[in-house]
């Protein structure tokens, strides 16, 4: 069985589920974050020999690691559910415990998992914009200067790096291949290098043309809009999942 792990408010995840199903990936289960939040049984074991997972969902479907062959993981955080019922004084602790728990069981899933979690993101590394800019620059992508000051409001630090009015293009790098918008070769290589340097199997990127027409880094995400890659990306994902290609 293969899993699509996403939220009910993630149209891209739902699109990928339908697309992969049409491409014949079966059995394919759509597992929504909201459903996981109310799982009636959780059993996650690990020891020196391996890792095991069993979840019984509210609709009585059972997920067992012995039957899971891979997953497309787009979970951003445990859905509120348990934590909503926690006492105010326990909420922060309950959230930390659930986040830690999810990090472990997703890490322990067998087969091909795109993307595996990291300690700074359940579906891959969520770097701060300053770190994305730094990494993009070191990967060979031009960047607009990024400035961060103690006098900036926190939300200002997450502002897009794109000048107003600039046209954005989006691409998705999956295992070194670039899907989506057509870009010149040096930019394609730099995008692939950024994904590799970020140790992220599937990384979405936004770029814009600066005043000289040079493709410039705008943003990156481990949870991109998969429709950017269209059917070619879905076909590549299906192949990776069903053929169990190691990363």
């Amino acid at each position: 069985m293969w899993l699509i792990l996403c939220s009910s408010s993630d149209p891209s995840g739902l699109w990928a589920y339908e697309g992969l199903r049409r491409l014949g990936v079966a059995p394919l289960e759509l597992i929504l974050a909201e459903s996981l939040a109310y799982g009636s049984l959780w059993e996650h074991r690990l020891d020196s020999g391996g890792t095991h997972l069993k979840i019984v969902l509210p609709d009585r479907r059972t997920l067992c690691s012995s039957r899971i062959r891979g997953a497309v993981n787009r979970l951003l955080a445990p859905a509120p559910g348990i934590t909503e019922r926690a006492a105010v004084s326990d909420k922060e602790y309950a959230q930390a415990e659930l986040q830690a728990f999810y990090l472990s069981w997703i890490k322990g899933l067998p087969g091909v998992v795109i993307n595996r979690p990291t300690p700074i993101g359940l579906c891959g590394s969520w770097y701060h914009p300053s770190e994305w800019a730094y990494r993009a620059s070191h990967s060979g992508l031009p960047i607009a200067p990024y400035r961060h000051s103690a006098h900036d409001a926190p939300e200002k630090c997450y502002r897009p790096l794109v000048p107003q009015g600039a046209t954005m293009l989006n691409v998705i790098v999956f295992r070194g291949e670039v899907f989506g918008a057509q870009l010149p070769e040096p930019t394609l290589s730099a995008c692939a290098k950024l994904a590799d340097a970020s140790e992220t199997e599937m990384l979405g990127m936004g770029l814009y043309a600066d005043e000289n027409g040079e493709w410039t880094f705008a943003n990156a995400t481990p949870c991109p809009d998969l429709s950017v890659g269209g059917v070619p990306l879905l076909q590549r994902l299906a192949k990776a999942l069903t053929q169990g290609e190691p990363a």
């Binding site: 996650h44 690990l46 930390a96 986040q99 728990f101 472990s104 300690p119």
Partner: peptide, 14 residues
């Protein structure tokens, strides 16, 4: 970032 592996003990155990 590397310190964050300790944010989940079973994750870090793996």
């Amino acid at each position: 970032a590397p310190m964050a592996s300790n944010s989940s003990k079973p994750y870090q155990a793996q």
